[in-house]
Structures are given as structure tokens and as C-alpha cells.
Design a protein around this nucleic acid. Structure first.
Lengths: 338, 338
DNA sequence: CTGAAAGCGCTAACAT
DNA sequence: ATGTTAGCGCTTTCAG
């Protein structure tokens, strides 16, 4: 009606003016400082509401106020695993008024480095990363950044700051020992692209070690360089079994998606579980446990990893001490497929 | 060694000094402006590198530079659906150097409103939201914020700015028509908590309309007020079938997770698909298509929704025109379960 | 409990 | 092609 559109948003200055106080008092009131009088608080809140004031945290953070953003770098969102972790993170962060700022590295160290640089440039309060082969530059940025950093998923590494996760090698080893104790002797493996997924590779490594301990070797191995999926597991098992020779008595899959595919192949091919063939996976996904015959697997505590990582960030920010390493562990799930 | 730790990060000023140019020139160089001489560019880059300079986008954005953050509000991460959408979003955004800042509303309008306020206070370049019953205040903030806003998933609504998605009501209707055309007459429904998931409710609504068109009514209906899951679908079907009377010839599930549970129940209970009972779901998840018998379902284009929404934001930011409504459609998938 | 001053680190707008 | 000037909107000191 008059000069400009009301597009320029009201600033703290206008709120303060309307409430008849100084900028800083308005600022304190709006941030819930407990030094302001109830009356001033009320006046300021009213002024803010009537103007439709929206806090500008860019300015706040630049002026030295706290940031409530936490950088989060994950390798992928395609598999339910990382959304589960993210869920745990988000949940804890949101309760504390924080937000994840997300980056996906696609398992690529270069992209990862770029993401770190990008996210750090927003001066987040902390950073959570599921590493995919961090470069030296990545490590340098993280250690120089002077903020809490949590490396998640795997704890078989030496973290820059903190780590939360489980031992994937240990999980593979434990599964091998368990299965061997149950009497299986011809153990085979079907996996997805291990070149990129180094945690899957670590599990296989541990599994192999378990076999070695018992004087065994892998009775068959199919790895396909594609992302894991139910269809891939199905195909992988089919390939494994086609290849003549004495068939294995058990197949360890790189994860539950793959293993469920294996179960489906057996159903379709009339292979009875676990008599003719046993199957084991990794992750403890809901789908595996809801199968007509529950899947033998290792439950990873994905959401807990996210929650714990968020907790580490928040704790550190509030000045508390935090553990350098947190092992959330894993649990063997004895289903009907073995 | 000397006074303070080098903890205070180098600023543009120091980079400029070291390169022997002014701050603004250093700024231009580092942002890749094409008005700087190659030599100065090089000098500045070297200076920045040798100092370990890390851009501060807080300051940049406050000073009027662009933000590369995009607020993203989703109701949940538990079901693979929203991670799929997020994946599409992230992918497109990342290619443009943008990052999603995430908030999860848990299907709660109040939380949603709070999230909008929070995210907007960071002055993001745009906002993408899968609405969960936006309040008036929410709408007011979004329309007053003067940034591109995309409401995703459903297009049966009147968006504040733009909308990208599909008609859930239409999907339910199409499925009903399809199934009736195929000869089914006793169609039942098994669903999860429809009170919160209004898109599932819309599908059921459309489905019912399809029945009405054909002079039919639902031959049975079980809804359980829990989040959807395979286990819940299994339980739901069990409940539906227990309840005496003439059994249905088809069950429409609220989504694929639920439907897969239904399929598992049939496998376990020795109900042959689709002769004794047919099953249909919604979403077109990988798991449903990898079942020994592929699931009849409606494929929703989730990742495409995310990509398209991101595209809308980016287009608008670059000044291009964008459609108010984008219907990414859906496709019927005729599997073996019907 | 409230305020005044100073500046966070950068970039748009003009110069030159 | 480069520099100067002035803020962006807020919060941290430090005073009262």
C-alpha cells in the first residue's frame, strides 16, 4: 500500500522498538534467558508475535551464538540401514532442538572430502560421519575444526575424535563360530560389492577367520559388484548353487536383504530350509524376522548407533566428558533358517 | 608456539593479506568469479590453501550471499518410502552444491509447525515438505517467507506454492477398478494407522469409491493403529480371516510392507495365492517384486518425487518458471498375487 | 535486571 | 580487474 512490499522481514530491532526495550533485551527475552522480567518477556513476545518476527539464526550464529546444526555424512540412503541410523540421530537431535544437515558420499572418499568442507563451512555444532575411506585432507579438516566429531558404524578404526559402532569383523567371526558349533562344515558366501562396502568386507574377513580357526575354508563364494538387494541375493544364490560340485550346507550372505533373496530363491526352487540348505544374514531387519521362517542373522543396533552418536555430540557440547569409543555391540539371532 | 593456539580460524582478511590483495578480491577469487585475473586467482588459492582457510558461509549468507541449504520436513524415516524420497532430493541437491537440513514431524502438525519455524530461521534457499496437517501458522510462515516451497507426496491438495506428487485417492480408485475388472467381488482391506497417515486414508477412500461405482462394499476391514510393518500386515490378515463368515477373495493392504506380511501369512497358513486369496499392496517396493510370487501393487515414484521437488527449488532459484502442480503419476503393477 | 558499544566474517554496491 | 564503504542481524562483552 505504501512504499515497499512488507517483504523485508522484521528484525530484532523492530521488535525491540515495539516492545519499548533495547535490542539486547529483546534478544534475551526471545532466547528464554531467565534474567528478564516476566513483564518485559511478555511485552517482547507480544511484539514479536504481532510483527510475525522470525529469528535469524545466521546472524545469531555469526555473532557467536550457538549453532544447532549438526553435519551428517552417510554413504547411501538406498539401504534401510542408514535411514535407521539417521532416524536415531534425528530423534535425539530434534529433542535438543538440533537439525542434521545431510550429505551423501556414495562411498566415495573424494565426495566425502568435499562434503566435509561444505558442511564445515556452515560452522555446525558437531559432525557425524559414517566414513568411506577418509582422505588425509578430510582428517585434517576434522581435527582442525575444533568441534565434536563422531565416526559411526565401525569401531575397528582409529577415530579422529570419537567413534560409535560395533566390530564388523567381530560380527563375522562370531557368526562363523556359532555356525560351526552348530555343526555346519561347508559354509559358503554370497555378497554384494565389497570394494565399496568395507564394513561388509570386514564381516567376510571375520567370517573367514572363524573358518580358519576351525581348519575350514569357504566352500563357495559369489560376490557381485552391485549394491545389495533382495533380487541380487536371489540371483547370487542361484549362481552359487548352479556351479556343480558338492553343495554347501550353509550360505552366509553379506546382509539381510541379500539373505532374504536367498530365502526366496529356496522357496521358489523348492529347497527346504534349513535341512537342505541353511542361510544366515546380517542386520536383523524386520523383514527377515517376519519371514515364514525367521532368518538367522546378527542384529546390528542401527538406531542405537544414531542415538548414541547424537548423544555424544550433545554431551560434549554441554561440556561433559565422553568416551572415545563406544561399542554398541551386536546380537546373534538364531532363526529357523539354520 | 607464540601467543594463542591457532584455534581461531583464518579469515578472508588473512588470506587476502597473504595474497597481497583486498578482501573482496580474495572473496571473488574463492567463489570462482570470472572477473579475477588468473594470476590473482592462483595467488589467492595458494594463500587460502597454505593457511587452511575454510569459508564461513554463515557470514556469507548473512551478507546477502546465497544459501545452499534447503529445509526438508518429512513425517517419518521408519518406512523406506521417505528415505527414498530423501534420496532423490539429496541427489539432485548435492549435484547443485546444496544440502538438505532435515526435520521429522512424526505426523504431528504441532511439531511440523515448530520445525518450519526452526528451519526457516536459518534462512534456507528453499523448503520441501511432506505435510502432516499444516496449521494456519505453518501456512502463514511458508507464504510469508518468500522462498520456494514444495509440498510433496500428494497432489489432492491446494499448495501454498508448489506441489509434486501423485493422487493417492486416484491410486486407490484405479486399483479398485482394476481388480473389479479382473473379476474380484469380495474385496477386503487391511491397514495401519490411518488417523495419522492421511495418504493411506486417501487411498482407502479412493478404493471404496471404486467399489461403490461397481455397487460393492468392502467385504471386510481391519485397521490397526500402529505404524505399518510386515509383521503388522501378517497379523492383520490373520485377524481378518479368523472372523468367520464368507472369506474375501482379495485383500487390499495399506501398503507393500503390510501386503508382504499378508503374503507371508498365506505361505505359513498354506493359503495358496492367488487361487484361494488374492493380495494387492501399494508402493512397488523391491521386496514385493522379489517375492517368490511378485506382488500386485501400485508403483509410486518416490525417488522421482524427491528429484522433481529438488528440481523445482533449483529452477525457481535460477529464475525459471515452474509448474504449480506436478503429477508424477503411478503405475499399476500386475503381479502374481492377483 | 537492562543497556551501549563493538564486531562476528563476509559480500552487494558502488566506485576507480 | 580491483578496491572502498557499508552494512547483513544478531550477540558478546562490559557497564550501569
Amino acid at each position: 500500500m505504501s512504499k515497499e512490499k512488507s517483504s523485508r522481514k522484521p528484525t530484532l530491532f523492530e521488535v525491540a522498538a515495539r516492545a519499548g526495550v533495547s535490542e539486547i533485551t529483546a534478544s534475551r527475552a526471545l532466547r528464554g534467558s531467565n534474567v528478564v522480567t516476566p513483564e518485559t518477556l511478555q511485552k517482547v513476545q507480544e511484539a514479536a508475535a504481532s510483527l510475525g518476527y522470525l529469528r535469524n539464526r545466521l546472524a545469531g550464529a555469526l555473532a557467536g551464538g550457538p549453532s544447532n546444526q549438526v553435519g551428517v555424512i552417510l554413504p547411501s540412503l538406498s539401504n534401510i540401514v542408514f535411514p535407521d541410523v539417521l532416524k536415531g540421530l534425528e530423534d535425539r537431535l530434534e529433542h535438543a532442538g538440533f537439525h542434521p544437515v545431510l550429505g551423501i558420499s556414495n562411498y566415495d572418499p573424494q565426495q566425502e572430502e568435499q562434503l566435509i568442507r561444505n558442511l564445515l563451512s556452515w560452522r555446525p555444532a558437531g559432525l557425524v560421519i559414517a566414513p568411506s575411506g577418509m582422505t588425509d585432507a578430510s582428517r585434517a579438516m576434522l581435527s582442525g575444526a575444533d568441534l565434536p566429531v563422531v565416526e559411526i558404524m565401525d569401531i575397528d578404526t582409529d577415530p579422529v575424535d570419537m567413534a560409535v559402532g560395533m566390530s564388523h569383523r567381530g560380527a563375522g567371526l562370531a557368526m562363523a563360530r556359532h555356525l560351526i558349533a552348530r555343526g555346519y562344515r561347508r559354509l559358503a558366501y554370497v555378497g554384494h560389492d565389497i570394494a565399496h562396502d568395507h564394513r561388509a568386507a570386514a564381516r567376510l574377513d571375520g567370517f573367514r577367520r572363524g573358518l580358519t580357526e576351525a581348519g575350514l575354508t569357504l566352500a563357495g563364494c559369489v560376490t557381485l559388484s552391485e549394491p545389495s538387494s533382495v533380487a541380487l541375493g536371489r540371483r547370487g544364490l542361484h549362481m552359487l548353487l548352479q556351479d556343480g560340485g558338492t553343495p554347501p550346507d550353509l550360505v552366509y550372505f553379506s546382509n539381510d536383504d541379500m539373505a532374504v533373496g536367498g530365502v526366496f530363491h529356496c522357496m521358489a526352487a523348492g529347497i527346504s530350509l534349513p535341512d537342505q540348505l541353511a542361510i544366515a544374514g546380517f542386520n536383523g531387519l524386520e523383514i527377515g524376522q517376519s519371514l515364514p521362517v525367521a532368518l538367522t542373522t546378527t542384529a546390528s543396533h542401527r538406531t542405537l548407533i544414531g542415538e548414541t552418536a547424537a548423544g555424544c555430540i550433545l554431551k560434549r557440547l554441554s561440556g561433559e566428558d565422553t568416551a572415545r569409543m563406544t561399542d554398541v555391540g551386536f546380537s546373534l539371532v538364531e532363526g529357523g533358517t539354520s
